[in-house]
C-alpha cells in the first residue's frame, strides 16, 4: 500500500455549521491511492502544542482534490480552521483498511455525525460499480444545521437519503438506527460510521437480521502507522485490534462491543 508524507495546498475551507468545517486539499498522490474508509494523519501546524497529528477519514476524492470533514472538538481542530486557500498542510496517508468494495449488494450506508464523512467517498464509489438501484442512505446528526448540507450532497449523487435528528429539526425525530430495521431485509451488507453507541446498535440489528456489517472506528491515535499501539479496540476473539492497521474499518463481529 502506498503511503505518502507531503505538504498539500489548501484549496478551500468551508464552514458548514457552527463547528463543522470542510477542508479541501490539492493532494494528487493521496487522491490516486485512497480507498473509501481510509484515513490521513494531519499535522495541524508547526507548533509542538498540539503535538500529534490528527486522524481524519477521507471525505471526498474528486479528481486530485481530497476533502476532509471535521468538527472543532479541541485545540488541533481549532488550529485547522485557521487555514485558508494557498496555505499548506502536512499530511500522511492514505492509511488503514477501508470499506469492502466488492462485498455483496445491495448495501445500506449508515452515518452519524462526523461519521458521515467517509460515506460520501464510499457512496461515489458505489455509483461507479453500477450495482442497480441502491437502498436509502441513512444519515443522523444532532440538528438540521449539522445535517442538511451533507444530506443534500448525497441526494445530488442520486441516492435516496433518510435523515434523523436528535431535535427533530430534520427528518425522523430520534436515532438514525431506528430507520434501519425497515430496510435491513432488503440489503446484504451494512456499512456504518458514527459514534460508538450508534455503531453498537447497528451491529446488533445486523446480527439479529444476519446481515454482514462493517464499522469504521475512531480512537485516539498517535502515529496512524501501527507503531504506537495506542489505538486499541477490544476484539471479540480476545486481545485487541489496532484501529490504524486492522481498521479503521472492521467487520462488526470482530469487535467486542462493550
Amino acid at each position: 500500500m502506498a503511503e505518502f508524507q507531503e505538504k498539500y495546498t489548501v484549496l478551500r475551507q468551508e464552514q458548514l455549521a457552527d463547528d463543522i468545517f470542510r477542508l479541501s486539499l490539492d493532494a494528487p498522490k493521496i487522491a490516486a491511492a485512497a480507498q473509501p474508509g481510509q484515513f490521513v494523519m494531519v499535522r495541524t501546524g508547526e507548533s509542538l502544542d498540539p503535538l500529534l497529528r490528527r486522524p481524519f477519514s477521507i471525505h471526498k476524492v474528486i479528481g486530485e482534490t481530497v476533502a476532509l470533514l471535521y468538527k472543532v472538538v479541541g485545540k488541533g481542530t481549532r488550529v485547522l480552521t485557521s487555514l485558508g486557500p494557498g496555505d499548506s498542510v502536512d499530511v500522511v496517508g492514505p492509511l488503514g483498511r477501508g470499506f469492502d468494495l466488492d462485498g455483496p449488494g445491495p448495501r445500506c450506508l449508515v452515518g452519524g455525525g462526523m461519521g458521515i464523512a467517509p460515506l460520501y467517498f464510499l457512496a461515489r464509489q458505489i455509483l461507479q460499480q453500477d450495482t442497480g438501484p441502491n437502498p436509502p442512505i441513512l444519515l443522523g446528526a444532532r440538528t438540521r444545521a449539522e445535517l442538511q448540507v451533507l444530506a443534500d450532497e448525497f441526494t445530488e449523487l442520486g441516492f435516496v437519503v433518510l435523515t434523523a435528528t436528535d431535535d427533530g429539526s430534520l427528518g425522523h425525530h430520534g436515532l438514525v438506527t431506528e430507520l434501519l430495521d425497515d430496510i435491513l431485509h432488503r440489503v446484504r451488507l451494512v456499512q456504518v460510521c458514527g459514534p460508538v453507541p450508534m455503531m453498537r446498535t447497528v451491529a446488533r440489528q445486523c446480527d439479529r437480521a444476519r446481515v454482514p456489517c462493517q464499522v469504521s472506528l475512531e480512537t485516539h491515535m498517535a502515529c496512524g502507522l501501527g507503531a504506537c499501539l495506542g489505538c486499541t479496540c477490544p476484539a471479540r476473539e480476545g486481545g485487541y485490534k489496532h484501529v490504524c492497521k486492522d481498521g479503521p474499518v472492521l467487520s462488526a463481529d470482530e469487535v467486542a462491543w462493550i
Partner: peptide, 10 residues
C-alpha cells in the same frame, strides 16, 4: 496483549 484502552493521551 497490553493494556485496555484508552492507552494514550496527548
Amino acid at each position: 496483549p497490553g493494556n485496555p484502552p484508552p492507552r494514550i493521551i496527548e
